[in-house]
Nucleic acid binder design. Structure first.
Lengths: 141, 141
DNA sequence: CTGTATCCTGCCGGATACTG
DNA sequence: CAGTATCCGGCAGGATACAG
């Protein structure tokens, strides 16, 4: 048991091995979190319909605050999923568009979201079943 | 200005309309968050390879704590995505398996994760470009 | 309109210890 | 092995005000 394979450290030196998100040190983890995060997923999905301005996104993603939307868009732009183009002037006008990579990811996201939405009745049923079952077992004091 | 169309409230009365996750009050939001969340997505993906025991999941999803794994599994079980079967005895033996719905969702998730991992080089390049650009513009005081 | 800055709170989630 | 219980620090993120 001198080697359990959990600590491979040759992460530099031209290693083109596949990124493994299951490794806690993998750089793909942050990106996956931006993509799948509470707001990132909805923001990307909203933009999949085409170019939108800041407040248009804000209106589509119900409940997001200015601050969080700003953060989210910046993270996505930094990861190369969203393109931001600002033409200076008055009033300010800033467009957000998905990059090609962003579109590919958003497509998967939409697929996932669509599935979840369609199966919500089943989910709600499962929840009720779970709750009643658990309530029956744990008689609360 | 008496009506801007943002508040439609006919959400009861036999409405079988699609759940809309963009609405902040939609019950699909929590479920989507369980699915796409930091740990939920990895847990579902880990289970897509087949039945696993608690600590087997734990080992696969590098970095997750017992507490969080427990929470995550319970949330997914409640939503009907994971099935938990415990045969009593000593030592305890508990199996976690994806339900059919869980498998469908995990498949989408794996697809998404695979894409993200494959495009990580592009993401890292974009990040470098973004960082250098921003650093050049914001001379910090 | 498009954001940044600031304050503040809740809860996420890590560490640890313990039970069956 | 499979969890639950408890403590607690950090930060996500909401509200608000303000700047360009």
């Amino acid at each position: 048991m001198h080697s359990d394979g959990t600590t491979e450290e040759h992460t530099e030196a031209g290693s083109e091995r596949a990124f493994n998100v299951f490794d806690r040190a993998c750089p793909s983890r942050p990106t996956l979190e931006h993509v799948t995060g509470k707001w990132g997923s909805l923001t990307l999905s909203a933009l999949s319909s085409g170019t939108l301005r800041f407040n248009e996104v804000r209106r589509r993603v119900d409940g997001i605050s200015e601050k969080i939307l700003s953060q989210t868009l910046r993270a996505l732009e930094r990861d190369g999923l969203v393109h931001r183009s600002a033409q200076p002037g008055n009033p300010p006008w800033v467009d957000y568009t998905l990059t090609e990579l962003g579109e590919a990811i958003a497509a998967r996201l939409l697929d996932l979201i669509d599935l979840v939405q369609r199966q919500m009745p089943e989910v709600l049923t499962a929840r009720n079943r779970y709750d009643t079952t658990q309530d029956a077992q744990s008689h609360r004091p």
